[in-house]
């Protein structure tokens, strides 16, 4: 049975797919920090879980296939924070350039 309106890509229920991948991984510190930023900044009213989802859905199917879960989350959180005026894209770009020069691994580049 075909629906009258095609589903948006993120609406995955009922679609074709292979077997369920059963590997699990422990979350890395940077992933936990992304999760914490989402919870804290949404609790503080900078954006909502719906804002997170909107950004995730607008990133499209290619992002779902090529980026990890928390990679997509930090990208979506960033979009919401820029939209909320927490900082601007020029500030972010300058800081990312500086962070990337700190070292070769997350451990070298992270602060605190």
């Amino acid at each position: 049975m075909q629906p009258d309106v095609p589903s948006h890509w993120h609406d995955m229920g009922g679609g074709p797919a292979g077997s369920v991948p059963r590997a699990e991984h422990d979350f890395a510190l940077w992933e936990k920090r992304v999760d914490a930023l989402m919870v804290l900044m949404s609790n503080k009213g900078h954006f909502t879980v719906d804002g997170l989802r909107r950004a995730l859905e607008e990133m499209g199917e290619t992002a779902f296939e090529t980026m990890s879960y928390y990679e997509r989350w930090i990208a979506a959180i960033n979009r919401n924070l820029v939209a909320a005026g927490a900082y601007d894209t020029a500030e972010l770009a300058a800081r990312m350039e500086e962070v990337a020069r700190r070292g070769a691994t997350y451990g070298d580049a992270q602060s605190r």
Partner: peptide, 15 residues
């Protein structure tokens, strides 16, 4: 160090 890890560090520091 990945691009998205760099973004996480930068976003966190700015906030």
């Amino acid at each position: 160090l990945s691009y998205w890890q760099v973004m996480e560090i930068a976003v966190r520091e700015l906030l």
